[in-house]
Design a binder for these strands. Structure first.
Length: 580
DNA sequence: GATTTCACGTA
DNA sequence: CGTACGTGAAATCC
């Protein structure tokens, strides 16, 4: 570390922003630490820190460097929406894969040090605290790792410390950029680093802003499935008992059965002469209307799902008084890099979409990417024949024509190739697929083989897909082969799904940027679907924008224009109105 | 009390 | 033996 200049109470814009990158470390009580290539400063209060960031954003639009989207979220809560960002955790995940991306992990990996050897802090007590304050001078210990006291001690116990954190962040960014520059596709991977960082900003805003939901509508949907809101625990018990009774009356001789226990349900079904390896819904559905017990059980499962997972407790916990449903968003999962959301935002039952209602005077502009994965495959593999098939609105029709098979067969064959499905009646179509699209199929095969031999992969955008799975108890040859095959499927799928996630995020952050002047707010991202909330008067403009942004995003992400991407766009008041 | 298994919703 | 996620309850482990 270079010597750290003394912290100043606050400086003007010109003093701080002499470069494109400005590192930011922020806490609520103390203020902000900022660093540029030449020096570090810290502001003395939260209000002044916010003012400083706001001024800098307005006048210079720097690329804000943050350790994680925690900082971006703090800013968003204060009403500050930044345009450009460098999210160290997001770039770390891109470079090194995996999930853990704290400052200590990022630092260790960038210095080629063993992550397992990262020193851990002793439990916090009065003595260790006192020690930290004395030893708090340098963030890097003698062993080369970040000192645990620094990492766990918070970013901003003092303005000086915040300034040091900001300067450290600048150093880390420079190391990350060196890594990106040394990669196989430096320009493309650097672009991914920026779009992934922007996606983290979007996630921070999604977490803060939430999804518009009509409480009364939601409650009536829940009531339809699970009954009225119970006022007491006894009432809840009674409702549960009555729900159970609707099933159990079809199996009177089975005795007391806990329907929530799959084992007991299996036994109950066996006694009624229904033998199943497990009691999953798709198995039950095959037997639908052969026995009233099966039908009642399926109904019960649906009601139980609403009552337990998406019931009144769910609303109470996640739906704010302002009619916004909030969950925690992350820009990339630990695997292929898709966005994730908690609070059930990504797996809400379709019935609940009727409660996702635009606010007065507003609408949702909803758009989803059509057949995103095969189109992405055409782009990342560079297969000219598959690229030609993407020119059709329905690309499976094009593939079917090329393969001389019907559309359902073509679709199953393409999906099977991407996901590694090897059974079924697709063998003939698969051979034709190999002949018609050899480049794309070879791309998938390479991913499959890499997975089988546990060789790490990188997505088109440069995300590392670690394949060093821990080999647990492969006792038999058969099991070892099965696991290798599973890794192969995983590899195939990760390259397609991961690249699709990258394109989707470029699209989303482009919409965020271009839609800001219209007040368009992205309120939900669903892997290939965007839900944008905007004042009704701008609905047409935003609908057009979603298409324009897709074209821009596709061009930025994969400049080869031979692959066509399509979006289905509609303007609705309620999410459930959207057909799809 | 923490972790794993089953089940099920979404893409 | 398509993949991924988050969730809740039961079962299991410690």
């Amino acid at each position: 570390m270079a010597s750290v200049p003394p912290a100043n109470p606050i400086l003007g814009v010109a003093d701080v922003c002499d470069g494109q990158f400005v590192a930011l470390a922020m806490v609520t009580e103390v203020g902000a630490g900022l660093a540029t290539a030449t020096g570090a400063v810290a502001s003395s209060s939260w209000d002044r820190a916010v003012a400083m960031v706001t001024d800098l954003e307005r006048e210079r639009r720097p690329r804000w460097v943050v350790w994680s989207n925690e900082t971006t979220q703090t800013l968003a809560r204060a009403g500050v929406r930044v345009a450009r960002c460098w999210d160290i955790a997001a770039v770390h995940r891109l470079l090194f894969g995996g999930w853990k991306a704290g400052a200590d992990v990022a630092w260790a990996r960038l210095h080629d040090m063993d992550v397992e050897g990262i020193p851990v802090d002793a439990p916090v007590n009065l003595f260790t605290h006192a020690e930290h304050d004395e030893a708090g001078g340098a963030p890097v210990g003698a062993d080369g790792y970040l000192r645990p006291s620094w990492v766990s001690g918070g970013w901003g116990s003092t303005p000086e410390r915040m300034a040091q954190w900001a300067q450290l962040a600048m150093e880390v960014v420079s190391l990350q950029q060196q890594r990106l520059a040394a990669s196989e596709q430096p320009t493309r991977v650097a672009a991914t680093a920026r779009s992934e960082s922007a996606a983290e900003v979007l996630c921070a805003e999604l977490s803060v802003d939430g999804l518009p939901m009509d409480r009364a509508a939601a409650e009536s949907i829940i009531a339809r499935f699970a009954g009225p809101r119970p006022r007491t625990e006894a009432e809840a018990d009674e409702l549960r008992r009555r729900r159970d009774e609707q099933v159990l009356r079809h199996a009177p001789e089975a005795g007391p059965v806990d329907l929530r226990s799959p084992a007991q349900v299996k036994t109950m079904l066996a006694r009624m002469g229904i033998d199943l390896p497990d009691t999953r819904a798709w198995r039950l559905r095959e037997l639908q209307s052969t026995h009233p017990l099966v039908d009642a059980l399926l109904e019960w499962r649906k009601a139980e799902r609403i009552a337990t997972t998406y019931g009144y407790a769910w609303l109470d916990e996640h739906l704010g008084d302002d009619g916004r449903l909030r969950g925690a968003w992350t820009g990339s999962d630990g695997a292929a890099g898709r966005m994730t959301a908690s609070a059930g935002l990504h797996n809400m039952p379709a019935d609940m979409r009727a409660a996702v209602v635009a606010e007065p005077g507003h609408v949702f502009v909803r758009a989803d990417l059509g057949q995103i994965e095969p189109r992405v495959l055409a782009a990342v593999s560079g297969d000219p024949a598959l690229a030609r098939a993407t020119l059709e609105d329905d690309m499976y029709a094009g593939v079917a024509h090329d393969l001389q098979v019907d559309r359902p067969t073509a679709k199953v064959a393409v999906l099977g190739a991407m996901y590694g499905q090897t059974t079924g009646h697709g063998a003939r179509a698969l051979r034709r697929l190999q002949a018609a699209f050899p480049v794309a199929m070879a791309y998938l095969d390479r991913a499959d083989v890499a997975g089988q031999v546990s060789r790490d992969l990188r997505t088109y955008g440069g995300r590392l897909i670690p394949m060093g799975w821990t080999n647990v108890n492969e006792v038999t040859e058969r099991e070892a082969r099965a696991r290798a095959a599973a890794r192969g499927r995983y590899g195939r799928n990760a390259l397609v799904q991961g690249a699709a996630a990258e394109l989707f995020k470029v699209w989303a952050v482009t919409v965020r940027a271009r839609g800001a002047s219209l007040g368009a707010q992205i309120v939900l991202c669903l892997h290939d679907e965007l839900l944008v909330h905007v004042a009704g008067e701008h609905s047409d403009a935003v609908a057009a924008l979603l298409d324009q942004c897709l074209a821009e995003a596709a061009h930025r992400w994969a400049p080869d224009a031979s692959v066509r991407f399509v979006a289905d766009v509609s303007v609705v008041q309620v999410w459930s109105e959207a057909k799809s």
